[in-house]
Amino acid sequence: MSAPALRLTDVTVSYDRHPAVHHVSAEIPAAELTAVVGPNGAGKSTLLKAMLGLVPHREGRIECRARRVAYLPQQAEIDRSFPISVFDTVLLGRWSRFGGFAPAVKGDMHDAAHAIEAVGLAGFEQRPIDTLSVGQFQRVLFARVLIQDADLVLLDEPFAAVDSGTVADLMDVVKRWRTENRTVVAVLHDLDQVRREFPHALLMARQLIDSGHTERVLSARNLLRARAMAEAWDERAGACETETGEPAHRHAH
């Protein structure tokens, strides 16, 4: 196997001193599909945001070899009533080319139209996004990721509240990314889908339960452990210490 696309070494991310991601070390293989799985509140989205640099990780190290990273956020993080068209939303994917001030060139426009077609929304270009269904809007976000031409793609619950037809279409897009040697990391809840489509998985419950080949990671024993750890949330947890009794970090969390 070639060098990993991402290497996490002992990464901890805390909100208000409570760790959402706790001492996670893992490798994300390059040009592969990796699923991030775990119960609600397990820190999956936080881990993705830490990979992007959207939330600071106080401790640990994240090494990323990707030149360009694309990110598909959860829909709740976007104002879906905003007056903007499908085309303009997709075109934003080329931000790294034109930034905040330069005009978009013909090639960008052409690629945006092409991406809209590729996710099955041809004819919707000028529709305002507040007239779209959840599934259609998810297709728009996929089109935006498509034209980012990223070698690392991070998807946060890409198939939440989306019907099976849309899931099948969008999964085809994801599989095409793999053939184009892009690395994909997706937060998912449908374990059957993960077993079927994602060769690698990362199971977490704030800390890493296991990572590697999906069949091994998603064993009954591991899943049970994940659920038990997610339920054991201590409001009054003391400062974190390692097994040797040494204080693990300078910043207690």
């Binding site: 992007l52 990273v69 990110y71 956020p73 905003f82 903007i84 939303t89 934003l92 931000w95 790294s96």
Partner: peptide, 13 residues
């Protein structure tokens, strides 16, 4: 406009 519409995207950029 992007900061109003999708601040997370702007931050990711």
């Amino acid at each position: 406009v992007v900061e109003c519409f999708n601040p997370g995207f702007l931050a990711a950029m």
